[in-house]
Design a protein around this nucleic acid. Structure first.
Lengths: 187, 187
DNA sequence: CGCCCGATCTTGACGACGACAAGATAGCCT
DNA sequence: AGGCTATCTTGTCGTCGTCAAGATCGGGCG
């Protein structure tokens, strides 16, 4: 009288268990055997769905990029809201975010990953286009916006920022983002 | 007719071998036994100097923070130069930089690490103090400067930035950093 | 309706790894 | 000269990722 032989949706269960494990101890400490134990399957079951450990992290990264693209699109095109949405995504989907930007953990050319990356890049580019900036420096303005949001999110997740910023990352980021966003564009 | 029993400076040799290995395959793929083979000692020798694998990464992070502090101080107080120095450090000491901001890989409260972190934080704070900004928003200006430099460096190392920026990170970052630095402070 | 084929999961094994314990060696200080 | 301690080696254990082979399920076709 055990669990049914077929899990039903083992792939999804493994992905969510993996994100929980990554939040707890980081991507490096992730163990396929531990995931199998958490979900209640044999130690080799995860490999069937993801090939290897890197494949699992690649799937998480791809999922994260898709989720990020959706979050950015939902921000509605406002630059400050986009920056805050980027940072909100990082803290609410910490596991995904931490894996997404570590190529050494991923199969960099996996089709699902490159497609997701392309989609997220497009969403980011669409959201960060400041109508006040002429085309010439638009790329640099996007780069600056992406950099400041990504930097704030990364430093926040690393625990490198002073604790007096409070507990809500997007709130704490707002005045910082405004320093870049709300000023007359250079020349 | 083998190597002498005592290596001479095994600790230093392990640290440099570790940085090379991290540059090649990332911190997660680091193996103490592989390091021992590279340096030509037994498989348990590294543990004597660093306790465990996390201890080795902690030592690298502390060393990186010290090196970063020195690089920032050498930038001479100019904000743009500091931002470029930060990014230059990230690409020239990629292994150190990747480890420094991943607390899950480190012994967070190791004395050498907290001391180095304090020193680097002080150097950063000293270098990023814009005399044009009044004290009230100075903290946010420092945060913005740190975020944009850190974000650019992180995205660059992740290979997430478009290739048409050229091969030199500090050069590519200069116009981006200027968008934040060279504008009248927000009231 | 029955069967069979593929997808899914299990079992077992192998080599590599981190960590620990116990012993060997070397340099140094008195 | 002699011992003391830091340094390094050897041996071992449990865990991990990965592979191969087998067991079990379920859906589609005859």
């Amino acid at each position: 009288m055990r669990q049914p032989y077929h899990h039903g949706d083992l792939r999804r269960a493994l992905l969510t268990a993996a994100t929980e494990a990554i939040v707890e101890a980081g991507p490096a400490a992730l163990s396929l055997r531990d995931l199998a134990r958490r979900v209640g399957v044999s130690h080799a079951a995860p490999a069937h769905h993801f090939g290897d450990k890197t494949g699992l992290l690649t799937a998480i990264a791809a999922e994260g990029l898709e989720l990020l693209a959706g979050a950015l699109e939902a921000a509605g095109g406002d630059i400050l809201a986009t920056g805050q949405a980027y940072i909100r995504f990082a803290v609410t989907h910490r596991a995904h975010f931490e894996v997404m930007f570590q190529p050494s953990l991923l199969h960099a050319e996996a089709p699902e990953l490159v497609a997701a990356r392309q989609r997220a890049g497009q969403a980011l580019s669409d959201s960060l286009t400041d109508p006040r900036v002429t085309d010439g420096v638009a790329d640099q303005a996007r780069l600056a916006a992406w950099s400041i949001a990504h930097g704030f999110a990364t430093l926040w997740l690393a625990g490198a920022l002073p604790p007096d910023l409070g507990g809500d990352a997007p709130d704490a980021a707002a005045p910082v983002l405004r320093l870049l966003f709300e000023h007359p564009p250079a020349t």
